[in-house]
Write a protein that binds this DNA or RNA. Structure first.
Lengths: 126, 126
DNA sequence: GTCTTGTTTCGACAGGTGTCGATACAGGCG
DNA sequence: CGCCTGTATCGACACCTGTCGAAACAAGAC
């Protein structure tokens, strides 16, 4: 037996924090339902930009007041999108005095990123 | 081939293929629209499982006939989902004789994976 | 207390999405 | 040729989603 369970996954180890790449083995049904919710949260241009605005903001967090400016949509709509991101587990939020701050949850992004990792070298594409 | 293409890259290298992580700088509007389409294609459990079934299938490709079995939905619905994945640029397809084969396009997955890469170490969470 | 500003929730509406059965198309086989 | 099997398209339906304006809530300033 020795290294029976050893599984080679050396450099993918980090990915294994939660999920191995989806290209390695078929996704289970429940896992797919779960992951689909996260991807759905990312499936809107406004939310993608919100997420990247928050993540790239100084200090890693941004107040809602920083986020309404760059968009053409109304402020309630921004609030709605932030709620979607929050409920998908992609960002956290907290009220501090007058303002509400949002920050990304890196583990969630890392999880999705790992899942999508393609064995580009191995695949040889086609 | 030796290890010409071998490149350990996995991480940063793949990122550079197209996009740096979204956490580094705000996403442009057009880029966001484009990426949102890909994520939307991933935002359905059936499509996620389809993609992972195709990717993990022997030879890196699968015939539609291999893909209808594992699901509770009808064959036209599978066909519809495959079309969505194809139009999002996530898979390619080709008819060979009687059967139609699908394979994943690794570059597309790598692009999304790189985009989501969080500087976990730097972020310090929170 | 009242007022003001920042944020969320509510209701409503147009448009998009997942699913189905029925049907059409493509290609091999007799 | 006609038939059979694998796959895609069509039309219809219930449901979900993004957006808005109006209103409610939260916290500080006066």
């Amino acid at each position: 037996m020795s290294n029976l369970d050893l599984k080679v996954l050396g450099q993918d180890e980090a990915a294994v924090v939660c999920c191995s790449p989806m290209v390695r083995e078929p996704l289970g049904e429940e896992a797919a339902v779960d992951l689909a919710k996260m991807f759905k949260a990312l499936s809107d241009p406004v939310r993608l930009r919100l997420l990247s605005l928050i993540a790239s903001h100084e200090g890693g967090e941004a107040c809602v007041c920083d986020l309404t400016g760059p968009f053409d949509v109304s402020q309630p709509t921004i609030s709605h999108h932030l709620k979607v991101l929050r409920e998908a587990g992609l960002v956290g939020s907290e009220r501090r005095g007058t303002w509400v701050y949002y920050w990304v949850l890196p583990a969630a992004l890392a999880k999705l990123s790992a899942l999508l990792q393609a064995p580009a070298a191995a695949g040889g594409s086609r």
